[in-house]
Design a binder for these strands. Sequence first.
DNA 1: ATAGGGTTAG
Length: 476
Amino acid sequence: MEPSCLDSRHLRLSFSAAPTLEAMGGGDRKRGLSVNSAKKRGCSKDTLLSLSDQKRSLSKILREEAAILNVERKSGSGKHRNLWPKAVLEALDDAISNNQWESALKIFGLLRRQRWYEPKSQTYARLLTMLGKVRQIEHARSLFQIMLSEGLKPTLDVYTSLVGAYGYGGFLDRALSIIDEMKTISDCKPDAYTYTILINCCCKLRQFDQIPELLADMSYLGIECTTVTYNAIIDGYGKQECLEEMENKSLSSMLEAGSCLPDVVTMNSIIDAYGNNERIIEMEKWYDEFQHMGIDPDVTTFNILVKSYGKAAMYEKMDSVMKFMKERFFSPSTITFNLIIECFGRVKNIEKMEYYFRLMKVQGFKPNSITYCSLVNAYSRAGFLEKVPAMIRQIDNSDVVLDTAFFNCVINAYGQAGDINIMEEMLLLMKEKKCNPDSITFSTMIQAYRRMGMDEAARELEIMLNDHKTKILKTG
DNA sequence: ATAGGGTTAG
């Protein structure tokens, strides 16, 4: 009698059985879903384990690191001109997908020295996309020149990545002139991808006034917007807290045009925008509304709900979301727990925060640098700084990799407490752990010195901060 | 190509 997982009718029914948020708040109402069928459905790979957790398992990370380092080492000496293609290409692949741009460029240099090397525009496109993401515009520019010098003709992909690199770097004019150049080349006419990337850049740079022109340009060229184009604009307005424009300009025109249907990303952007502004009624309204349009929530949706209820101090509802996920075999993720921990930490509810920290570990989710940032900040705010050293020792005995942001939190915590000596010790520890101090580290320490009346120390650091900034400008 | 987690100051 048990319906099969492959039975589409059953799938549809079980999805449409999703209760409204009102019902979720109601708590212990029984769901009409048998454990067996739910388990089967839960096994459909996207619910049981979050994809990012699967993809980034520790062993995989370690393997990638080793492969990258191995190949990278060889790139230092000029000798290795006959390496196996597979090793080099895989290392390059891993470095690119982890955004390790320095390694990637080194490995690419090695690749170019191989006897079997053949320039491929796709490799250039992927490198350019990565350089855009990490804002290395200068490197993107010279990589493009290298490509031309190898006699490769830029493809549509390459041009599009270049548009992204300039756009995300804040050079919208340059990005636009590349699009103009593209229009003159028969195989490289800009398409919906190209324009969507540029529109997304405008959103991130808060240059919304440029968007109508781009849309007009598209329609003049006969390029149809896609769902992704609308999503980028909707999320852009939402992030800038322009909720009126988001709902009544972007979302309405999407729904009215009817040529692209909203999807779960549209839904998540909209409810995140209302949730972030603590407009819970509208958030819930849109959650139900999107479900009526046939769009099902995913783990990201639930994370957004958890975060929003937490921010609005509606802890029972936050609990209900967790309970609901459990009942429907939606696994939470590290992000879910990090959000809850951050939420209780913010209001100095140490007890609840530590409860969820334990629960997270019991349920097999590994805390990461972000988790520990929230803990340190909470201990600092609540005046429980004495808990921090034990925590650091505990991390030391684990394989958790800490980063610059974590140490910035620690340094800030001791700085706020006026504990200058420990603060300076933490800077040393930070360097020992191979985390580079950044401009936030310096500003944090400068503030601390100022508060303690240590103007000389503050001035010295200020000079270092300025040096640091000019260095960034030169390499960026 | 788009959505969800942590860091300073102003």
